[in-house]
Design a protein around this nucleic acid. Structure first.
Lengths: 201, 201
DNA sequence: GTCTATAAAGAGATAGAC
DNA sequence: GTCTATCTCTTTATAGAC
């Protein structure tokens, strides 16, 4: 019992450390030694518990079931669906910024590990695409290219991050307001709906 | 003469190979051997000509002077300025997709090499920010948070890529039209201006 | 200037003590 | 289950022949 509990703690510590480091330095840029140092455990435990660095990566995405992957959008109104998707994604991004960051890296690099993670991103993609199509059909959304519009929306969704890098620049203003979740969701929704030329009734 | 010319060819071949590989596999994920193999030259020549892998990276961004960095926007109308910036950025992105990809990776990872590249991104950031502020002042743009709006716009600008990954999904349509530059610029401008609630006169 | 061969450091994974 | 010490392979960088 006690042994099991300790093991679980160690596995969690390794996963947390890996999540942080992978997001920060990339999968290839992170060494097993760094992960174990950050987790405060011995080097051998990554191999013992996960069977290698690669499996730590996969384990990160296994308990990974954000709402928007399993919800069935495109049942209600397109506008409502899009707002739900934006909300669900924003919440997930706020809750797990490192995973979003890591996922984005892997996608950009077309990494060999993408095979196992592709379904997750494809799901978001298809949901969004279906919603945009439905909204165009009802005349509520206005755009020419479905393909590019999906890109624009995903770009706006994914790029909004707690990126300390970019925020340096803007902190000059002094008006560093830590908006809450709902406010951020509203900003995002407003921008995207505007981009889709949706007119509020 | 002949020796110099050969050397320049080799340096160019190395830079091209590195650009491609860095974008594909990341800086850390790319080995000097891979670069030299791809370039078709001997392993030692990276150190000889550049003094190490890291300097190859920096060299990639030295001859790197996209229009939008040196233009002085925010002189004409905000809308015209924004359209120019979108156009300049889109052209650069189409011309050098690997560099954009690489830059994006490095930013996301907060890489230690970012110090030398930060000014480039900051310049874009500041230009865009100034334009958005000017447009709000004239009442042509409508948004609440300057910080987030900059994020949204950059997201929409940067995420539109020749990403073979995402396009797989959409090719199902069969309607795989290879839009030209001007068309892509128009799509992008329409989406972003919409997001800013700009109303065409 | 370019090559092959090699040195020195670093990586991931494992053996064996506890 | 966890640790330290080590093995093996790969990495970057350099030395020296041409």
């Amino acid at each position: 019992m006690k042994a099991d509990t300790q093991a679980k703690d160690v596995k969690l510590k390794i996963l947390d450390a890996a999540k942080k480091l992978f997001a920060q330095k990339g999968f290839e840029g992170t060494t097993v030694r760094q992960i174990c140092d950050e987790a405060g455990v011995a080097l051998a435990l990554v191999s013992y518990h996960f069977g290698g660095k690669e499996n730590v990566f996969y384990a990160l995405f296994e308990a990974f079931t954000p709402e928007f992957l399993h919800k069935d959008y495109a049942l209600a109104e397109p506008v409502e669906d899009l707002l739900s998707l934006i909300r669900d994604f924003a919440r997930f991004r706020l809750a797990e910024p490192e995973l979003i960051n890591l996922l984005q890296q892997e996608i950009m690099m077309q990494s060999p590990r993408l095979d196992k993670v592709q379904p997750i991103v494809f799901a978001l993609w298809k949901q969004l695409r279906a919603i945009l199509q439905a909204g165009k059909a009802t005349g509520q959304f206005e755009y020419e290219s479905l393909k590019h519009t999906v890109h624009f929306v995903v770009g706006a969704l994914i790029f909004t991050r707690n990126s300390s890098f970019f925020d340096q620049l803007l902190q000059e203003d002094g008006v560093q307001t830590n908006e809450d979740e709902e406010t951020l969701i509203r900003y995002t929704s407003d921008f995207i709906l505007g981009g889709l030329r949706y007119e509020k009734k």
